[in-house]
Design a binder for these strands. Structure first.
Lengths: 212, 212, 212, 212
DNA sequence: AATGAATGAGTTTTCATTCAT
DNA sequence: GATGAATGAAAACTCATTCAT
């Protein structure tokens, strides 16, 4: 009966109270990413969170608000990863680039939030601010950081001169494709993420280092 | 009053009759790709096709049937392109690869059907047969064809030995990314498709040809 | 089988199509006036109109729109009566006043729309534009017209001088009270409208004609 | 720290305890009279009373019970006024009538409870017992009392003989109208209650005293 | 073949009521 | 006694589908 102790009860409750929105946001991620915005019933989100439909409305004013806050909530970890990418220690451009790509794969592809890119793609037309937010805060920032690394490599004579002109979409896109593959096609042909990552890095570095 | 002639009417009608499903499929592509399956109202499809909602049901038994047939209809051209890729004439592996990639870009990215990948990604979870169909008939076949080209290049000493181990997702993914970019982010930052394609080919060929 | 004649069918249909909104507005008047705005379920309006819930939305965009248009629709006849009041022929002020009051009673109290005043009173706080519309277009205009008659009577020496200072609410209020009584208390004590009207006219005219 | 003394606390609490229902009934009057029964959320009543929603249920078993008790609570003062009307001292019928009307105006129109008539009108259909209670205990009793005064005036030769036949609605209705006006239209055109009362009395007495 | 009015099942949203603390 | 988080029944509103014309 230890869990009947008033102190413990209070503790448990406080924790629950604070967790509620988080639980909902987690359930929302799972359900929205399977069914999309319009295809998701709040009943299902509630059921997955183990609460009743009405409870959602205690924390989020509408389905649309829930969706928006959910996406932003799960983008945050990606933003933090981007920060890390920028703070790479000194070293050869190649080493830095490898580390940066590794960080991107780890979060964009291997975590719970790996379905975020799919959601942005699916709902970007209906929620343009969300698409723009993702574009500005995740894609562009990641691009900039990695471009800086390429610039350093070129300056050091490590990379080909014309690598500077490369479209950065082309440099990052394998990571995006991996995230999508995990969400959509993995059931038909599971992705060997390690090998895939290796291919990506090889391809990129050979491309960067080869003579123009 | 020429357009009141019974013969002309009939002619016009026959033509119309044949065009009807096509008009609907085109309207459906446009509307579904913007709103997704659940977010699309048949009213909007009808409006865009310039017909009434009931007419859709003369040609398609349900929203779901329409969606499925629509996707398959617009995947067809991609299938045909894939066929062409396989029938590449002899030549250096590099030349063939360039041509193959060009064909893929032309159809997957530059045509009306360029939103199909986005749709497959968005609705693949809800329509798994569709996702599988796309996986088998488009992705796998394109992979196989290109892998054969790589094999030829390796045999001829044109490409690095270990290129055979490369995950083909990584080889094709830039094209997928381009299609998605066009659908989702182009409004924020328009993609320079020519330059993007160039980067992709450079990256790939330098990677393939570089020494292991 | 005469009603299967194509012409008749068409006629019937056209009539129905044009009547639909009117039928809904009638049902809405009946149900809203019993339950008030918030207490009314559109299901009940639909049931009373003999249609389904969805049909209401073919003609009115929301419950609120239906309510507003309903009130305005049923106020129209009152506006027309007001017009008539203003166009009274010459005659002694007393005769004109009697006719004017009769017209008011006939429409405000004896018709289907007699519950409009009750609705305005009940919902005026929540729909201030509606209350103001009724105030401006019904109350004020009726006031002005009758005040003009009083003025004429005073000028002709028929009415007391100080009658001009009378608050017109006090002159019209018995009609309002009668409408309310009909809607609320008639079940407990049915109003003898003829006698009530007689009292009102007597009271008013004795008051107007008595010496100051 | 005096307010931490247990005795004071208890005192304060006792007082609070006794005031609680009254505070709720006051808040309920304000909110119900603005939004009507169905349009009122208990949350709003609680907020206005400065308590939590659950607390209401400590004193009232349901929204319906609260509404009923609230109306009866605020009708009480009107009942007491009616008692006073009946206990008028001797004097001319005119003087008594003036005093009686003054009392009615003072309570029905000038107090916090002046929105009660509007509430009865709005919700009378849904709460027929309430409407009947108001009819029997307020309207009928006021009518009877004033009719007795008229009878006295007629007997004394002070009023016209046929005044006895007058519908009493017509005699009291200006007061009702004033209460309604205050609740609904005052924002568009504020009622000058003194002048309005004067008109009412003038009109009535001239009518009563004029020769038939 | 084509229409579009009508339907009603399904979804979002609200809110009276309960209850653990 | 007081709270306010949680519930779920009920109501507004939507839209795929039908069908009379």
């Amino acid at each position: 009966m230890t869990n009947k102790s008033p102190v413990l009860k209070k503790l448990r409750n406080v924790r629950r109270k604070d967790q509620r929105p988080g639980e909902i946001l987690r359930a929302a991620l799972e359900v929205f990413s399977i069914n999309g915005y319009a295809g998701t019933r709040l009943d299902d989100v509630a059921k997955r969170a183990g609460i009743s439909k009405g409870t959602i409305y205690l924390y989020f004013n509408s389905k649309e608000v829930l969706f928006n806050e959910m996406v932003r909530h799960w983008i945050l970890p990606q933003l933090e990863k981007i920060e890390q990418i920028g703070k790479q220690p000194a070293g050869s451009a190649e080493v830095i680039l490898r580390k940066q790509l590794k960080v991107i794969y780890e979060d964009m592809v291997s975590t719970k939030a790996s379905c975020i890119p799919k959601l942005i793609i699916s709902e970007g037309t209906r929620f343009p601010e969300l698409a723009e937010f993702y574009y500005q805060e995740v894609i562009i920032r990641a691009h900039k950081t990695m471009h800086e690394t390429v610039r350093r490599g070129v300056a050091a004579g490590e990379f080909r001169q014309d690598a500077l002109n490369w479209q950065l979409h082309a440099i990052l896109s394998p990571a995006l494709t991996a995230a999508i593959w995990k969400s959509v096609f993995d059931r038909f042909s599971p992705l060997d993420l390690k090998a895939y990552f290796q291919t990506h890095v090889d391809l990129l570095l050979h491309g960067l280092k080869g003579k123009s």
